[in-house]
Design a protein around this nucleic acid. Structure first.
Lengths: 342, 342
DNA sequence: CTGAAAGCGCTAACAG
DNA sequence: CTGTTAGCGCTTTCAG
């Protein structure tokens, strides 16, 4: 029945060697004779030896596991980021332990506990929407465990991070709408304590400014970026004496909400109101009209984040200087904003 | 700088107790005095003691980690399943290690290696599309590590598994279409070596049969269930001398493909051709018309799968009798098939 | 180049 | 109820 795993000491016994010798041979140490090394490897293979990582981890104080905390995993952004993370991590010989905070601050704290208990060698985090402070991460830093944030970071805190240039994403979206002839461009914004939403908004403002279009406060609606929220915001905008001729939404979900409301009101897209979203979700090309959106280079982000983390894990002097990586977004133009005829 | 973790022995020293006593107190052992227990807990709290799980795992031979292998993580089905898995696993004090096979057999084998090395206590698997045999799982069984499959299982192999009653899903979809007055109902089917597609197809056939509608081979098109594939299949069907009046697609993606083709051909949905998909993807309510689909109870599936796995992990006699759990699907009727007028 | 021995932090007999 | 002791399997000095 259950076959006992073969251990280093089994091999050592069989070969009349010391465990230390076998250990060294197996871990490709230099100061070992070609001959013994061969013998060890051959027997290891034959006995189907599998190293006990737990033991090694305990001894070395490193687990070869990285922890990742994301707000959630549904919706393709984080899914793709994780794909990127896994690919790079596995290639480098690391395992990945995944936690979801469910957009909840308290849950996020628990996740940190979990990962610390699992002795991960480094942590990758994208903040929950409800996270406003940094207390729980102090613990990580105290233990001197490398920490890298991605996408959603807390503003004004000096940490290593990989983020999309959301400002550019916003800027390009609005510039594109302006080029299509739109002048009253509205914005659906998210919680402003999160860098991503703040920057998208900033890009929006700057683009308007640079093109000499006056900023109008009543065209900006903040919300939580769900589909329902988008419906609410759009309904609100349609009640203005002079309605907008375009909407730049900071999320594809609320953009779809807007889209549904516009259809209910028999308004044509993009002729009456042009529409752009953010994230380039899978469904962006499933709606009608297809939704213009901003691609966030998800997999690249995941890859870049782990690479940064691994650098920190491998070379010691961690605290020296937090590094930031800025990824360039890509505007994907589709029907909902294209070829606008005046 | 890096604070050293406090260990059990630190606490023991401080309190003039034996490590074993402290250990027992901390793990809520019964045979310990109320008083010492209190003292231990208090100090542990004060020193912010965090148990070293690796050490415990090494000692106990169990890692308190479960491994999960999924084909991929994008697309909401697996995302939600994983959410369910995590919720239940974490509540039971287990960590989850996630691997993606990328729908690739070879990659799946590597994932198994990875998880075995990480010493997981149990493995949860949903097969890659390209997996046709079971060799790599033998290793898991040899080691007597509990193994539970979910959703995608290999046909005819006797293992524990949690699956959706895909047959029912197919049956209900077709029955619903029949009730709407459709008679020439087509089917987009997936790779038939996978249980899920095979059963959806079987449900389709049986429903037709039970309602006295003759089966017509030319109305069944097999493919790989992508959006492009749906477009191809639909185009093919439209070339028939007598076109179908409904399509039951085994995937929402190919259903959307069909939907796009139908629109290009100026056909009305559901009046000219009714349409139903499978999986109830997020975007099912984003299309126009909204897509009728079958909900797969994703989170329940994840939860049920871990619970089954944990039972096996906790009580020893593993090999006794593989258990199967069958979840009932739920038809979600939306515009693409509703209130059909003849 | 190889061996002996110590110990990572925890648990589980076995004794009191 | 508490203490003593022995290891889980591996890496890593320190000696040869």
């Amino acid at each position: 029945m259950a076959t006992k795993r073969t251990s280093i000491s089994d091999i050592a016994k069989e070969l009349n060697l010391a465990v230390s010798t076998v250990s060294r041979a197996l871990s490709g140490h230099s100061r070992i004779s070609e001959a013994t090394s061969k013998r060890v490897w051959k027997l290891a293979e034959k006995l189907n030896y599998q190293p006990n990582h737990l033991a090694a981890a305990l001894r070395k104080g490193r687990s070869n596991t990285l922890g990742v905390i994301v707000p959630h995993i549904d919706g393709h952004f984080f899914a793709l980021v994780i794909k990127g993370v896994e690919a790079v991590a596995n290639k480098a010989g690391y395992n990945v332990m995944l936690c979801q905070s469910n957009e909840d601050y308290v849950h996020e704290q628990k996740n940190i506990e979990t990962l610390m208990n699992a002795q991960v060698d480094g942590v990758l985090v994208s903040l929950a929407r409800t996270t406003h402070d940094f207390k729980h991460f102090e613990k990580v830093r105290k233990r001197d465990i490398p920490l890298v944030f991605f996408d959603r970071i807390l503003d004004g805190v000096n940490v290593s991070a990989v983020v999309l240039d959301d400002y550019q994403g916003g800027y390009q979206s609005v510039q594109h709408l302006l080029e299509q002839g739109c002048r009253r461009i509205a914005h659906f914004g998210g919680p402003q304590h999160l860098n991503i939403y703040k920057n998208r908004y900033a890009g929006y403002c700057q683009a308007l400014h640079d093109h000499g279009v006056p900023f109008d406060q009543e065209l900006v609606v903040f919300g939580d970026m769900t589909l329902a929220d988008g419906m609410r915001s759009m309904t609100e905008l349609l009640q203005l004496p002079q309605r907008p001729d375009a909407v730049f939404s900071a999320s594809d979900f609320s953009a779809v909400g807007a889209l549904q409301v516009l259809k209910q009101h028999q308004l044509r897209i993009p002729q009456d109101i042009a529409l752009t979203g953010f994230s380039n979700e899978t469904f962006a090309s499933f709606t009608e009209p297809m939704l213009t959106s901003v691609d966030q280079r998800c997999e690249e982000m995941g890859g870049a984040a782990v690479r940064l983390l691994l650098e920190m894990v491998q070379e010691r002097p961690t605290q020296l200087s937090p590094r930031k990586i800025l990824l360039q977004p890509q505007l994907v133009v589709r029907e909902s904003s294209r070829c606008r005829q005046e």
